[in-house]
Design a binder for these strands. Structure first.
Lengths: 327, 327
DNA sequence: ACTCGTGCTGATAGCGCTTTCAGAACCGGG
DNA sequence: CCCGGTTCTGAAAGCGCTATCAGCACGAGT
């Protein structure tokens, strides 16, 4: 910066003022400084800037996964919003549900100069990260169900799951089986909504199938379900699980939706292309990420009192759900 | 750090030595410092550290996308390797193929204190980012085809694509049509391999179908292809495109693989679950990310002279390819 | 007893920037 | 022509850490 100042014939603080755009500088000097910056292709050091100015333009995302559809889309939304606001995004993955896993992931980003942290609280590692977060770090959680505590952006999954389950019951299914994804707390919002709908309709509440994120495991579940004549509709924790279940049923000659209806969750980009096209709930993960970022900036600079941002996802009826077979 | 020093009854440099683990400190003082660090839950400032020590433990990933399967997996691999080495990962997305898009994305991370940059050169935005990279920043490119210039970790896509195309020809198909993904350079490695196999076999080289990343666009392509009796085998730029094509063919009553064989690329987690299970090429994107990180650390601290790391993906034959129909 | 390592420790000097703060330059009004 | 009020500018003081170097014990060698 001293080089730039020398070249432009001004002092270092003046260069700083031009670059940060904070204070007023005469047009002449501003012009000269900008020219020198270009000529020397000068890039200010964010490290030095963060060291002195105490409000870094960077944030960290902490998550249990980054490549699964919902996670990846949420991160994409965060990144887009952050980039638009001139913030850099750092990512740290929490490998497992233990406190030690969370500490390892957090240490990496908490030593960086960051304005705050966004935690993807979709699974046990995310919950662990949130629990281990030092109290002095601004944090916003992104999740599928509102909980007291930290500020959070949520997708009201329980409400949508309830509506989707009602849709299946309305088609005439006596009850709806459920293959959950691994819950982040005691019970996933999707499972809660499903249970609520069954209870409200006075339907039998079947035991939960084994929870999984893996479509391959879900395929096994589908095969098993094919042998159970009491199964006429299955609500899956997400679309990938639904794809596995549909495939597993098909392996055993059970057709969807003619013999068994299957519904998913998330509106995965491939859900519409699946055969049959999957009935699901459209989740705006990208928007969730954007809302999370907005919430965090509000928390950090105190411009906003808002601590919650909720959105209700939308049920999308497609071909994988139909009235029960008359068998 | 001064507080810690005071509490432990030592000097600030001694605390620094304990924390960085670089120099020798007497066990007694080390113990006292560690206790004080815990008691005060002291976290050293990475900004100050980077400012003075000049070799930051952070790196940036620049990519045209982050949520598509291959991208997300590669980033996951980078993050895992980086985290294991104590490095923080920053992410910046390049929105479009223009130099201005690249500059915007780069500015964000280049001002941060980073050891280097990993560019995902899978598409035009990635290429633009690479081109706009200042020469003084250590950089490694990750891509599907080796090119002169910067150090890079590659997946030899051309070789694998050639092998896959040969497989289709060996089944008896007179030629193989191709739906490419948008190429990062003049021509994608997958397309090159396909062309090479056709030429070597003396088969007719059909005109390329419209390039796309979108399975929905590919579905349209599939519908169109269904009307073309000369089409008996289709090699798609990736699995998602293959899924779209299969679905489009099915829309028009054309069965896969009985009427038309379809192959994909990447071994997407859902490829095996698709109906029919998709013949594809297994790409180790996670490993690509790991290799990219290793290459970058070698470039940065000069411990390694290696500038390339190449791996040959493996063809996976599944149910979507079969001998041509005798129609 | 005296020198010479050897190991550990602390004072000191920055890293590259922003933030006071005081001074210079200029304006219009009395 | 002097005054207070605006702008603008530069000198100086750090932000929190690490690197350097000198100093201090201590034991071994002469």
């Amino acid at each position: 910066m001293a080089d730039v100042a020398r070249m432009a014939g001004v002092s270092v603080p003046t260069v700083s003022r031009v670059l940060s755009g904070a204070a007023r500088v005469s047009p002449l000097k501003r012009e000269r400084v900008e020219e020198a910056v270009r000529a020397l292709s000068f890039r200010p050091s964010a490290a030095a800037r963060a060291l002195v100015s105490r409000r870094p333009k960077a944030l960290a995302v902490v998550a249990g996964d980054t490549s699964k559809y919902g996670y990846a889309e949420t991160i994409r939304g965060i990144e887009a919003a952050a980039r638009a606001a001139g913030h850099t995004v750092m990512i740290s993955v929490v490998e497992g549900p233990e406190a030690a896993d969370a500490d390892r992931a957090l240490r990496l980003v908490l030593t960086q100069a960051i304005a705050g942290v966004l935690v993807l609280k979709f699974d046990p590692p995310g919950v662990a990260a949130l629990r281990r977060m030092p109290p002095d770090v601004p944090v916003v959680a992104l999740s599928g169900a509102r909980e007291p505590g930290v500020p959070q952006a949520v997708l009201d999954e329980a409400g949508a799951a309830e509506e989707l389950t009602r849709h299946l019951l309305a088609l005439g299914h006596p009850t709806v089986h459920h293959v959950p994804v691994p819950p982040s707390r005691r019970e996933d919002g999707r499972t809660t909504g499903w249970r609520r709908a069954l209870r409200a309709a006075g339907a039998r509440v079947p035991a939960l199938e084994a929870a999984t994120w893996s479509p391959h495991v879900a395929r096994e579940t589908g095969r098993r379900l094919a042998g159970d004549a009491s199964v006429s509709a299955v609500f899956c924790g997400n679309d990938e699980v639904a794809m596995g279940v549909i495939r597993g049923l098909a392996d055993e000659g059970v057709r969807t939706p003619e013999d068994v209806s299957v519904a998913g969750f998330d509106d995965h980009p491939l859900a519409e292309l699946w055969t049959p096209a999957i009935t699901t709930v459209r989740q705006d993960f990208f928007g969730l990420g954007e809302r999370g970022f907005a919430l965090l900036t509000g928390v950090v600079d105190g411009t906003s009192r808002r601590r919650f941002s909720s959105e209700r996802p939308e049920v999308v009826i497609r071909a994988s759900t139909a009235p029960p077979a008359t068998r």
